[in-house]
Design a protein around this nucleic acid. Structure first.
Lengths: 247, 247
DNA sequence: ACGGTAGAGATTGTTGAACAATTCCACAAG
DNA sequence: CTTGTGGAATTGTTCAACAATCTCTACCGT
């Protein structure tokens, strides 16, 4: 009886939509969890760009073996968060000025393409609006750290309009890399603050379903941001490298 | 004396441009070389989609320890060539139909954007033309394997028009993933052959410096290719999965 | 015949130790 | 000030061992 009932419930269309829960069941290996911890630490600036990550120290601190830790390093190196130098170890990456330019080149391609396709108010509009408002609130209360992350989220939502899993992953990595850049910069607060009004303009266009209009604003936004960032960054990156060289 | 002369030769501008040779001195770790071998084997179909890669067997065959081999596996998993299932091992990935759709979604964004920017005949035009001709020659001699790779190269050259290191890397991965798809398909030869004339049309537009025109052709090209591929692929992928399940 | 279960065997996950190879650092010699 | 030259420290790689998990087979009761 119960067996029959169970089979009826389970079979065929009963499992439709259940695949979304795979992530909850899929356990993660130790290396992946370690990579998660390190990724977070790097994002929040605990490990600063140029710093070396000692296998022994971190392995002891986290209670994992060197082999496992090296697997985690390998993961983050592939995400361009760490730089691996043979026989010297892994270092938190210091993006070069060429990296910054290339990151913005890709962002322009990806984000603009995603926004351009908008023809009617997208389903994710509330989420996009939310991100803008979080940024406003952070600026009002002077919480510069949250302002930066809110801005990142806003752009990730824009990219997500493409509806592509691979685009989302790519943009996630690009913004993680950009965080390294901001950690090197002197005053990221004023940098982000300046662009808040523009977020609203873009948001308005998206609300109206005017993709091309939003794209035009976004392109100019990214052009200006890149120009300003490149101008302010060149000497900063060199200074960071020199500081590392001088211990 | 000699010391003075030497210092004059080496110092300052003497090293300018030398950084380009860094890649030549940078040795690769064993794990990276192993990953290179496996990547090649997967591309050429030695390891078929769905097949499991045993740590013990491959480790013995290549003469490396399990730890080193696992580092190589991580690398390829990150490139979506292998799928890692906890406590079960790594398998050559069988891209889903959704993967194929997403790959083409990204290709449309990336390649079209790269081509759109063309205003005059690009410096890389000879290289692009060369790829098309290699494809022609392969089709003429019935060398279907070369035809496929030539086609891949052609599109990589198109993407390279963006001038972005990250775009090149991304497209490289997408095409590697597509190779898995072709390995599952029944008749990849006829698939590629059909699009040879279109390559010429696109090439002509690029030669003339007509980026938008090339983009229009390329977009239609990718739309058609995706449609055809998706139609032919769905049951194939399921068949491959079933074949694996039945050993 | 069918579904369930227990257990043996195989494979992966992770650790710790060991040794080789390389880099780093300080110091002496020219 | 540059150029060896040690030794210490760190990474690269392997190996062996055990725990955790999966897979398969044989067995059982219905």
């Amino acid at each position: 009886m119960t067996g029959t009932i169970a089979s009826v419930v389970i079979e065929d269309s009963g499992v439709t939509g259940l695949e979304a829960d795979r992530g909850l069941v899929t356990r993660k290996s130790t290396a992946e969890r370690v990579a998660g911890v390190l990724r977070k630490r790097i994002a929040e600036g605990f490990f600063l760009p140029g710093g070396r990550l000692s296998e022994q120290d971190i392995g002891n601190a986290l209670g994992v073996s060197r082999n496992t830790l090296r697997e985690a390093f390998r993961l983050l190196t592939h995400e361009r968060l760490l730089a691996h130098e043979l026989n010297r170890g892994v270092f938190v990456r210091i993006p070069s000025i060429e990296d910054v330019i290339d990151i913005y080149r890709v962002r322009k391609i990806i984000e603009c393409a995603a926004v351009r396709g908008v023809r009617t108010q997208p389903a994710s509009f509330p989420r996009i609006k939310e991100k803008v408002e979080i940024g406003d609130e952070a600026a009002r209360t002077g919480n510069w750290k949250d302002l930066g992350t809110a801005n990142v989220w806003f752009h990730q939502e824009l990219a997500a309009l493409s509806g592509s899993e691979r685009v989302n992953e790519l943009v996630g990595r690009l913004t993680a890399e950009l965080r390294l850049v901001f950690h090197i910069m002197a005053e990221p607060r004023r940098f982000h603050e300046r662009y808040l009004p523009r977020n609203h303009e873009i948001l308005d266009r998206i609300e109206a379903g005017d993709g091309p209009g939003a794209e035009q604003l976004l392109m100019k936004y990214l052009d200006d941001a890149e120009e300003q960032l490149v101008g302010a960054y060149a000497d900063r990156a060199d200074a960071a490298r020199a500081a590392v060289a001088a211990e």
